[in-house]
Amino acid sequence: MRKVTVFLLISTFLLSGCWDQRLYKELSVISVIGIEGHIGDIKSYFAYPSSNSDPTKYIVLEGTGKTLRETRIDANKKTEQTMDNAELTTLLVNEESAQKDLYALLDVYYRSAQSPMNAKVVITKGSPKKFLEIKETSSKEIGEYYYDLITAFEDTTIYH
């Protein structure tokens, strides 16, 4: 009986593996999301790199729906890969949308186990889509660009 117990105990260590593994080659990794509208009528914009070899070139997808989950599902239908916001760095929220109920808009991202809790929230004047359609070439990926911009602003001002 003791040999069987030892065998089962050792075999459990050998059988364990990465059961929740997600391969980046099968995902569109979203780093910036733009939100405008209110619950019931929302538009979201999702930016992700268009190629693995050059992350500075990216695609912006638009999704519409009554909730933020519906907008993500709608945008996900427009891409060949599954969208993943595990590396979300910045949330751009329209000023009018933020005035009504900002927490209701952010709830879906901060309750998800896959979303990072350190994403920066930016309130934009006008549509966040124009902030995602930057035509200048940058040496950084768009999410990293906005994250570094916000962090530098925080470091040089009283807003910590």
Rank of each mutant, 00 (worst) to 15 (best):
V122D: 11
F131N: 13
S127C: 05
A119G: 07
K129I: 04
L132A: 11
E87W: 04
A104R: 12
A119Y: 12
L105Y: 02
K129G: 06
K120W: 03
D101F: 08
E144L: 00
A98V: 01
L91E: 03
S139H: 10
Y110T: 11
L105Q: 05
K135R: 14
K130G: 06
E87S: 15
L102Y: 00
K140E: 13
E96T: 15
I142R: 14
F131T: 07
V121R: 08
Q99R: 14
L105F: 06
I134V: 14
I123D: 07
E141Q: 15
N118M: 00
S139V: 06
G126C: 05
A113T: 13
Q99S: 14
D84I: 04
S97A: 15
E136M: 15
V93Q: 11
S127E: 08
N118V: 00
K125E: 06
A113V: 10
A119R: 12
K140I: 02
S115W: 04
E136S: 15
K130H: 09
K120I: 03
L91G: 02
E141S: 15
L105P: 11
R111C: 05
M117N: 05
Y146W: 09
Y103H: 05
I123R: 10
L106K: 02
D101M: 08
R111P: 05
I134D: 11
K100L: 10
V108W: 09
K125D: 06
D101L: 09
N94A: 11
N85C: 05
R111N: 11
K100D: 08
E133S: 13
G143K: 13
L106W: 00
L88C: 02
T90W: 00
L106E: 00
I134C: 12
V122E: 12
G143S: 03
S127A: 07
Q114V: 10
D84S: 13
V121T: 07
Y103S: 14
E133V: 05
L92P: 10
T137S: 14
N85Q: 05
S115G: 11
S112L: 11
L106H: 01
E133A: 08
E136V: 14
M117P: 02
T124V: 02
